[in-house]
Write a protein that binds this DNA or RNA. Structure first.
Lengths: 154, 154
DNA sequence: TACTCACTTGCAACCTTGTTGCATGTACAG
DNA sequence: CTGTACATGCAACAAGGTTGCAAGTGAGTA
């Protein structure tokens, strides 16, 4: 780490976390650009699966082109660092991929605020399928009202 | 066009099924229009959940405006006669609603051909939710390879 | 049967989400 | 420091879905 003084100074505040993310990105075989670092950081700290729009807002000062964000997200998914699914509105949502096993996934979507939460629920027992069908993945999609919205309506 | 004679004649062929559908639509509190009858008929005979586009093609001679089809489908869902869900591509798919209880639903989506099948699987046991969350609906989303595609790739 | 009116339909325009092609910029290896 | 392959931004496009409004029609009523 030796380049310009200012760059080092600005980075030093969060250098620990960022350096870790950057290293992870490089080890996946890509360049550690601000866009990728920031998006991965946002996904890491998000309590729920985010839409492209959510992430765009979360970027704050670092404005990325729509297309770039799509490409970053696609790369994250391809690199196995993120998970992509669709919500009930038909919009893609992204969340950090749990290391390794991600065969089963459980989402809770709040009908009131629209947020999607990734739950650590145990995978449900696979049901009996018609003859000839083979199962690769199970997504359990729960809907209802989240704690925050339950408080507000009470 | 001569109204009474020809119209009655053409209808008489399928009058049994159509009259039943029409009655069902009226009992839901709406007018039994050709559009609604036809769409409901298509959904009834479909083995899988259909996209807006699928239904548009299935309409054949009776061409409906895109918007009208969307509105008919939305009405069917609102009336409880159809069920709306999204596939992996983020496109809405429609299927006939099982009479009455539709709290839980199971879909199987084939990754190869993209078709979506509605299964009569028993509702999975609701998992433990974080405090304050309330559950209204469960969708179990299975993915893998359907029987047809398994045969083709074999 | 004829009338009437609210419910439906069709059309046009628009929005959101997501993708593709190409020129420019930049991370990082040498 | 420099060159190059990878990233980014811009513009244009495509599909899916929605909204507003004028015209058409089902079905109850006289």
């Amino acid at each position: 780490m030796t380049p310009t003084a200012t760059a080092t100074a600005t980075l030093s505040a969060q250098s620990g976390a960022e350096a870790s993310l950057a290293a992870q990105i490089r080890s996946a075989g890509a360049r550690a650009t601000p866009a990728r670092i920031r998006v991965l950081q946002i996904l890491r700290t998000a309590p729920a699966a985010l839409t492209h729009h959510d992430i765009d807002l979360a970027l704050g000062t670092l404005t990325l082109d729509r297309v770039t964000l799509y490409r970053v997200l696609d790369w994250l998914v391809e690199a196995g660092l993120a998970h992509k699914s669709t919500d009930a509105r038909g919009v893609f949502r992204f969340s950090v991929a749990a290391a390794g096993e991600h065969q089963a996934h459980t989402h809770f979507r709040c009908d009131a605020c629209g947020r999607v939460f990734c739950l650590d629920a145990p995978p449900p027992a696979p049901p009996r399928l018609p003859a000839g069908f083979s199962l690769l993945r199970i997504d359990l999609d729960l809907r209802g009202c989240c704690a925050d919205c339950a408080v507000q309506t009470a």
